[in-house]
Computed example of a mutant assay.
Amino acid sequence: MITLVKGGEVYSPEKLGQKDILTVGGKVACIKDEISLGEIENNELVEVIDARGKYVFPGFIDGHVHITGGGGEGGFATRTPEIQLTDITTAGITTVIGCLGTDGFTRNMTDLLAKARVLNEEGITAYILSGSYKIPVVTLTGEVEKDIILIPEVLGVGEIALSDHRSFEPSISELKKLVAEVRVSAMLSGKKGAVNVHLGDGRKMFEDIWKVINETEIPPSHFIATHGNRKEEVFNEGLKFMKHGGFLDLTTSTIKKFLESGEVKCSRALRLIHEQNIPFDNLTLSSDGQGSLPNFSESGEYLGLKVGGVKSLYQEVKEAILKEDVPIEKAISTITKNPAVAYGLKDKGELSKGKDADITIVDKPTCEIETVISKGKTLVKEKEILVKGTFE
């Protein structure tokens, strides 16, 4: 597994300019102005990819994907299907973090872990979060701490629902205890320890999160508040939360009604944050892929749903770059370096020596995805799918 990516304009996500990238054994071996085949031992084994006229980005990270499916708010027939490998790779994504949502009953942690391991075997990197909307959290081992300490794929808990009519209404003491369990077990296992919080459009918004932060010694950086763009008020409060050290996660999958009801489109949100000169460091995007996009009446009655798609992740970034004039390095950081920091993925999110060889190459004029390399292996080349899932 030796690959030489030649002549692309590299964003690490910081702009590096025109560079060559050599990957060996699934890792980035070096990045230089020029690397010749003569410098490489066994160069007859090298796969050379011509990236001239292309942008070269780190492989995208989607921090919120219902890899085993989600939904179910309208009954059994509304359970959404599990994701397939090529859904992910053709979206430029090389790392996913799987989670459960509303349904932590007919969906379970065993299936979630098994699906993550399937995706790892098929060629990408997959992690999971323990639990669902519900507190107390339903885990694999019976304890949050043991899940995080003993299971490599488990990065934290989530998505825990707050300020939502589907929330299980945890008390502040329950929430404090959960976050403390995540922090201590993460310290013992060398992980970051993430608490992914589903924010609904209820009146409380960030209120419970602020209470935990203000009434404990737990750093805000453990919190990843997702769906932070679901309405203007949530978004504006999220900017304060982000400045305070928490991670604000914006959801790219949407429907027309959500936008008409006040949801802030992600590409526009990136422009607004850029115009306010707010640092992007604690800002992430995720797709909510395979999750349901349910439509409820004001009284809470279920009206219908659509399914979130992982392709929306880069689509919003692309629109931010092409239509909203957000600098490339800022826009790309929200789906590469920033989620890697938020979830403690030390080998992901950047193109630099020693990091995992996850690379997404896009056409310069159109910004369309062309080639995707995961852990040093080319899965999509010039829009041709080279590797499919086991049953695709």
Rank of each mutant, 00 (worst) to 15 (best):
Q84C: 08
P81V: 07
E47A: 10
T78C: 01
Y55S: 02
V48M: 00
K54A: 14
T78M: 00
L85R: 03
G53P: 04
A51I: 01
T86G: 04
F76T: 06
F57P: 05
T78E: 00
G71N: 03
H66N: 09
E73A: 12
I67D: 04
G75Q: 11
G69P: 09
V48K: 02
L85E: 05
K54R: 15
G71M: 05
D62Q: 13
T68K: 02
F60R: 07
G74Q: 03
R79G: 00
R52Q: 14
G70Y: 10
F76D: 07
I49T: 02
F60L: 15
R79P: 00
I49F: 04
G69Q: 11
L85Q: 05
Q84G: 12
G74N: 03
G74E: 02
I67H: 01
G71V: 02
I61H: 05
V65Y: 03
F60C: 10
T68H: 01
E73F: 08
Q84H: 14
A51H: 02
G59P: 14
T68E: 10
E82T: 07
P58E: 10
F76M: 12
V65I: 15
T78D: 00
G71K: 01
V48P: 01
G63D: 13
R79N: 05
K54H: 15
E82M: 12
T86M: 12
Q84A: 14
G75K: 04
P81R: 07
F76R: 12
F57H: 08
H64L: 13
T80N: 14
F57M: 09
A77D: 14
H64Y: 11
I61N: 05
V65E: 09
D62F: 08
A77W: 06
F76H: 06
R52M: 04
T68V: 15
I49Y: 06
I83R: 02
K54N: 14
Y55V: 01
T68Q: 05
V48G: 00
E47Q: 15
E47F: 02
A51G: 10
D62K: 08
T80F: 06
I49C: 06
V48F: 00
K54C: 15
H64E: 12
T68F: 00
P58W: 08
G63T: 04
K54E: 09
E47N: 14
F57A: 03
R79T: 05
R52C: 11
G63W: 01
T80A: 03
T78R: 00
G72K: 04
R79K: 14
V56H: 08
G72C: 09
A51P: 04
H66P: 07
G59K: 13
D50T: 13
V56D: 07
D62S: 11
E73R: 07
F60H: 11
G70C: 10
F60Q: 06
F60W: 14
H66L: 07
